[in-house]
Design a protein around this nucleic acid. Structure first.
Length: 524
RNA sequence: GGCCCGUUCGUCUAUCGGUUAGGACGUUAGGUUUUCAUCCUAGAAAGAGGGGUUCGACUCCCCUACGGGCUACCA
């Protein structure tokens, strides 16, 4: 009995010791995450959100945020994409600690510049027997695929049929050496009848039978690695501790795990993010959805045709805030966050499992919340605002922002809010009919008279309101007539401020114009 | 078809076995303001379905349905 307890204690003690050691090792290892986009065009907001979660994860753990460009497919590489990615990250305030632009001790950070690294590493796998050369023509395999499809099956190049093909497993050494002079690929040799156990930080343990996997190509015939291979090698060499990427990668996680194991490397942690879905209908959010419904799906403009959130009048803070909320929440009722606040608040537990539909209305609301937190000067410092105000005299810019600020959801609302400055809208005739029998002309004449006499806007406002009270003119008719005269319709910013911005001369002109219009209507 | 992941108001989400299932966007109705906007108050609105386990299930397990992803010498 005594012995029994003693054993447990020893065992307990040992277990605790091991745990402590493991904890120590983990602590010592600096958190390093990476955002690894392919430069195949503009960065989609789904990609940007992946970048954001990586960034936040790094910041929360005082770790390092790496940008790595995955340009292993030369055919799909698009000029300007890398700059676009870089600019988008900068705009959001998520500058990478290491990357192609600012370097770092784990470079180069473009996969196309790491060719020899992959070439070296693939030899390790070949020597270990974990990978093999394959010489099959692409056309032959395509035919096999079509055949299989006809039968309602999926063609897989793997343990069940690899011996039927032309590869270093079936050829003699001499034949192989000869065949290597021509085109070849290198495949991962996936052992059959085993179970790969992988762990995802937000989904838990996933078990996959190796028989469902195929012998994935690791090196392409052009000498470039595939995503799977380059990814694993780079993540290991760059000492990435946690791989945070989109959910579309979850099915290939077992393959990646197998590659780590083949090398004898420690596997990093993995976090697969849920996808951003269409606002309505099926599938993930695409460029066409944005075009169709008039909202952006890219952070910045791409070419001349495609505006981004920035060009549509979003604040970087608004977009980042909304993106963070798509698939993550802190568990409290707070929804408006600055980047700095997100850096503190971010946690793995709050990451959602299911995909999230993109909601432009909520995105605008978040942007509005961010906008209202800013001072007039801060708003003016946004370059988009300067663009929007460029038609107006520069010395009026600040007061114009002050005039419309509280009415803005997105920056570009400025355009609509300020169109009255050029000229009035065509008079809203329904309003004229409604107020016409309440003698708007008398009101306008009084406004005119007071305006001519009084230069101070505040005093003018006081006088005109006290006049209306004395003469029992309703506030409604007063404000409506005045607004109709200056703006032409019944919506807009504070009408006395509008008057002040327009100036005495223009205001008087517009009042006269409405009086004339009313006279004309009477004659008819 | 096969494999993997998922499923709470229309949408984003809270709940970690016991709640009148909470909040936000949107929406509806009031109210404040000087019309609009803001703001305030209130309302409508949800656990996919079926089996278990349990005294008790939105919560755990299984099945079905639905949704999503992957199934390339693309990432």
């Amino acid at each position: 009995m005594l012995l029994f307890f003693a054993n447990i204690h020893v065992l307990d003690g040992r277990l605790m010791y091991i745990d402590k050691k493991r904890l120590y090792l983990k602590k010592k290892m600096k958190t390093r995450v990476r955002f690894a986009p392919s430069p195949t065009g503009p960065l989609h907001i789904g990609g940007l959100r992946t970048a954001l979660f990586n960034y936040l994860f790094a910041k929360k753990k005082a770790g390092v945020f790496v940008l790595r460009i995955e340009d292993t497919d030369q055919n799909r590489s698009v000029e300007g994409s890398e700059d676009y990615i870089q600019e988008a990250l900068e705009w959001c305030g998520m500058n990478p600690d290491e990357g192609p632009k600012n370097g770092g001790e784990f470079g180069p950070y473009r996969q196309s510049e790491r060719k020899n690294i992959y070439a070296d590493h693939i030899q390790t796998l070949i020597k270990k027997g974990a990978a093999y050369y394959a010489f099959d023509k692409a056309e032959r395999l395509n035919e096999e695929r079509k055949e299989a499809e006809k039968k309602g099956e999926t063609f897989k190049y793997g343990h069940q049929n690899r011996l039927q093909f032309k590869n270093s497993l079936t050829l003699t050494e001499k034949e192989t050496t000869e065949a290597l002079k021509k085109e070849f690929v290198i495949r991962l040799k996936v052992e059959s009848n085993q179970t790969v156990i992988v762990k995802d930080l937000i989904r838990g343990v996933v078990r996959v039978k190796t028989d469902t996997l195929d012998d994935k190509i690791l090196m392409k015939s052009d000498g470039m690695p595939t995503y799977h291979f380059a990814n694993v090698v780079d993540d290991h060499l760059m000492e990435i501790t946690c791989v945070i990427r989109g959910e579309e990668w979850l099915p290939s996680l077992p393959i990646h795990k197998l590659i780590y194991t083949a090398f004898g490397w420690e596997t990093p942690e993995f976090m697969h993010l849920p996808l951003i879905l269409k606002t309505v209908g099926k599938g993930k959010l695409s460029k066409r959805d944005g075009d169709k419904d008039g909202y952006p799906v890219f952070p910045l403009k791409w070419g001349k045709e495609t505006p981004g959130f920035r060009e549509m009048g979003f604040l970087a803070s608004g977009m980042v805030n909304y993106l963070a909320l798509l698939g993550w929440n802190e568990g409290i009722e707070k929804e408006v966050y600055s980047l700095k606040e997100l850096e503190k608040a971010f946690n793995t537990k709050g990451v959602q499992k299911g995909g999230a539909r993109f909601d432009y209305e909520k995105a605008k609301w978040i942007n509005q919340q961010q906008l209202q937190k800013m001072s007039v000067e801060e708003i003016y410092s946004v370059s988009r605002v300067k663009e929007l105000l460029s038609p107006f005299e520069e010395n009026k810019h600040l007061s114009l922002i002050r005039l419309v600020k509280e009415r803005l959801n997105i920056l570009d609302d400025i355009k609509d809010e300020l169109t009255f400055i050029e000229s009035t809208y065509p008079y809203d005739e329904k309003v004229i009919e409604k107020i016409n029998d309440k003698n708007p002309k008398a009101v306008l004449e009084q406004i005119k008279k007071t305006l001519i006499e009084e230069d101070d806007v505040d005093l003018f406002q006081e006088q005109i309101i006290s006049w209306s009270k004395k003469n029992e003119v309703s506030m409604g008719i007063l404000m409506q007539s005045f607004r109709l005269a200056l703006v032409g319709k019944l919506t807009g910013p504070d009408i006395f401020k509008v008057c002040s911005v327009l100036g005495k001369e223009v205001s008087l002109k517009r009042i006269n114009k409405l009086i004339e219009h009313l006279n004309f209507k009477q004659i008819l």
